[in-house]
Amino acid sequence: MTTRTDEGRGPAMPLTPDTSILVSIVEDHPLYRMALARVVDGLPGCTLGAVAGSVEEFLAYRTRPGGVVLLDLHLPGRQGPAAALAVTEAGHRPLVVSAQAGQADVLAVLAAGARGYLTKSAEEREIAAAVRQVADGGTYVSPTLAGFLLDSARPRQAGPRLALTPREREVLGLLAEGERDVDIARALGISVRTVRSHLDRIREKTGQRRRSELTRLAIGEGISSRLRVTV
């Protein structure tokens, strides 16, 4: 079993065969952290990995990449989109579990690489479904949030379409799906420098600077398939 302190923290250790889903937890509230750990410990086909109170603490465990990370947004140290990005860049799949449920919060962390978003009112059954969906490479968004995300995903009916080249639309679509510049370059067979040149031109044409703003724009234009929401 994983060695944990009284607060429910501990290093990642394999508990079940390698075919199981490794699920780690990054949550700074001790009671909720312990509750999540108990839920994950009881999920069939899942292994409880690192249980930490901050992103920095989680990364220090050097948990093997590829697992799902239940991630709070308001943490000591890195938080919000920066937390999701750090977990993603370490090779994990962040599934946000947060009391914050505003549209801007959700879109920003999805743009930073989060694979899903649950509210803290989610029950055990929904957490299990979300973990499996994310582990399978999908995206899961809590039904309580799906309405406004689907509204955001509808292409706008009024106004001219963005004057983007086909390649710029490809780059923007991949960015909106949470891909890093290096991943976009690999997917399109171009250099990272070329990707950044495309992004610079997209920013000039749209006036949107931040990745979260570009993600929102792509979804509104129907360019991104990021929010094919599972509910």
Rank of each mutant, 00 (worst) to 15 (best):
T2K: 09
T3C: 09
T5V: 07
D6Y: 00
R9S: 12
P14E: 13
L15N: 13
T16N: 11
T16M: 09
T19Y: 13
T19A: 14
S20Q: 02
V23R: 09
I25A: 07
V26S: 06
E27Y: 10
H29T: 04
P30S: 04
L31D: 14
L31W: 08
L31N: 07
R33S: 03
M34P: 04
A35W: 11
L36F: 05
L36D: 06
V39C: 11
L43E: 09
L43N: 12
A52E: 10
V55N: 07
V55F: 05
L59G: 09
A60I: 02
Y61C: 12
Y61E: 15
R62C: 08
R64F: 06
R64G: 10
G67I: 04
L70H: 04
L71K: 10
L73Q: 03
H74V: 13
P76D: 03
P76L: 02
R78W: 01
G80S: 14
A86S: 10
T88E: 11
T88G: 08
T88K: 15
E89W: 00
G91E: 11
G91D: 12
H92S: 05
L95D: 14
V97G: 07
A99G: 14
Q100M: 09
L107Q: 03
L107P: 07
A112W: 10
G113A: 06
A114D: 05
E123S: 02
E123W: 00
E123I: 02
E123F: 01
R125V: 13
I127C: 02
V131G: 15
V131K: 08
Q133R: 14
V134A: 07
D136S: 15
G137S: 10
T139P: 01
S142Q: 08
P143A: 11
G147A: 14
F148K: 07
F148W: 03
L149R: 04
D151Y: 09
D151S: 11
S152C: 15
S152P: 08
P155A: 02
R156T: 03
A158P: 01
A158Q: 10
A158F: 01
G159Q: 02
P160F: 00
R161Y: 00
L164M: 04
L164V: 01
L164T: 01
L164G: 02
R167Y: 01
R167A: 12
R169I: 08
V171T: 10
V171A: 11
L172S: 02
G173V: 03
G178D: 08
G178E: 06
R180M: 05
A185H: 04
A185C: 09
R186L: 08
L188D: 06
V192N: 08
V195L: 03
V195C: 06
R196G: 12
R196H: 09
R196I: 07
R196E: 15
I202V: 12
K205P: 01
G207Q: 06
G207N: 05
R209W: 02
R210P: 05
R210G: 05
R211A: 07
E213A: 12
L214T: 01
L214H: 06
L217Q: 11
A218Y: 02
G220I: 05
G220R: 09
E221H: 05
G222A: 07
G222E: 06
S224G: 07
R226M: 10
L227I: 13
L227M: 13
R228K: 13
V231M: 13
